[in-house]
Simulated scan of single mutants.
Amino acid sequence: MDASDWSSPSVPQVVLAGLVVAIAGLVVFSAGTSGATFSTFNTEWDGASSLRSVADDAGLDVTVTGDTAAYSSATPPGTVAFVLSPDSAYRSGEAGRVAEFVRTGGTLVVAGDFGPHADDLLGSVGASARLDTGRLRDGYSNYRSPVMPVATGVANHSLVAGVESVTLNHATAVTPNGATTLVNTSDYAYLDTNGNATLDRSESVRSYPVATVESVGAGRVVVVSDPSVFINAMLDRPGNRQFARSLLADHRTLLLDYSHVESALPPAVLGVLLVRQSAVLQLGLGALVVGALAVWSRRPAVGAESVLAITSGRPVARVGRRIRQTLPERWRSAFARSDDEDRPRASPAELVAHLERRYPDWDRERVERVVSALERRDE
């Protein structure tokens, strides 16, 4: 392949280059995104990227974490932490960090539905509210379906200031156990405890709490009976965006806790967080960068071999050695780096004649390019 091949790439070369760029872009994009439900790095309908946008628009600093150690480094007063539908249990030490965050003035929002782990966390931090196990239905006040109740009973409380309703999606209810109710369903809701989508005699039609708040130490715990209130598709449903804004109001920092949500953090984010949390990794990465810079600073200067590689399409070192080894012995030293002005030199015409004999398949233009490269290497 000669220089003209590079200046005028063929269709297969263009296609190959396009595929390489596309694959590289896909790898980079995949490393920085997540398909997990509730993930702030998921921009699809079931992700929570819009929740982060609401916080950004409100001027909050957003911290995303996959480790409960972030609670220990947070400033509890002024920080609100969100835990959305944890799918694994918080160990004793992890729950202890969350509890300390709340006791020293932090606000914790736990949004769950039917799994046990949200209730376990609530118990560990000292909250009394719990989530029910039935599916909430409302045939009167809903968004297109009874399984999407629109809760309109909003209390006079700063955490729901400006909120007129909250739209739920396959939610359950909150059992307050003494906590203050923030949002109630209409009086026509019921809990479908047996999952048959029918109101049975054992099921009561009444208003059910779907959001509560209670004080724990110097902080407070908010319980929401449906984590999907905060996903991208639901934030634009009646009342939900304002509900999110109100929970974030009067705070300076939002802590998004994904320590117990599987695959919520993409590989690139996990890598950054891991390096931030490990002094050993930071030291190793720093040493790697210094070593790379040292190697780069000692790189050989670009010379004839690089030019030859461009003009011939062959690997740099192999082409340079091959060309020089074909020269007569008296000429070879003429192309070594030296300040010796008395060394024997070959004229361009001699080099052209030699290369034409050695490589009869090369055209004259290519031979002249190689000779020109060798001459520039000798300057």
Rank of each mutant, 00 (worst) to 15 (best):
I231S: 05
W45L: 08
Q242F: 10
V125Y: 10
A99G: 02
V83M: 09
Y188I: 00
A118D: 11
G284M: 14
D87F: 06
Y140L: 03
A179E: 01
S186C: 03
S124G: 04
E379M: 04
A336I: 07
P209Q: 12
S259T: 12
L199N: 10
G153I: 01
L254C: 03
R220I: 00
D339R: 13
L285H: 06
A3Q: 07
P146L: 03
P176T: 04
S306H: 12
R252E: 15
G96T: 09
S145L: 10
S202A: 15
S8E: 15
S39T: 05
V216P: 13
V213F: 01
G78P: 10
V20W: 04
A3L: 14
G115I: 02
A99I: 01
P227S: 05
R322I: 05
S225R: 08
V269G: 01
F41G: 02
R377V: 05
D61M: 08
D250S: 12
S259D: 12
F29Y: 15
A70K: 11
E356L: 06
A161D: 15
R343G: 03
G195Y: 08
S49P: 11
N42L: 06
E94Y: 08
E305P: 04
T63Y: 09
L327W: 11
Y190V: 02
D342G: 05
P227G: 01
L182S: 01
E44H: 09
P86N: 08
T326P: 04
F38G: 00
D5R: 11
F243E: 04
A99V: 00
A69D: 13
I310H: 13
V21I: 15
P116M: 07
R201W: 09
A171W: 07
S215W: 08
E44D: 14
D2V: 01
A171Q: 04
N169A: 14
W296Q: 11
A349S: 15
G303R: 12
T152P: 05
A353V: 06
A69G: 10
T253A: 03
E329A: 12
V223L: 07
L281H: 08
G66A: 00
P238E: 05
P328D: 07
N142Y: 09
A268R: 13
S158W: 05
R322N: 12
Y90F: 15
T180C: 00
Y190E: 07
F82A: 00
Y359W: 15
F335K: 01
T75S: 15
R97Y: 09
D46S: 11
L131M: 07
F114R: 08
Q325V: 02
S53L: 13
P209F: 02
G25E: 14
G66P: 10
T37D: 13
L265G: 01
E44N: 11
T33C: 05
S30I: 09
V352Y: 10
R322E: 15
R220T: 02
S312R: 10
L168R: 11
F230N: 05
W362C: 00
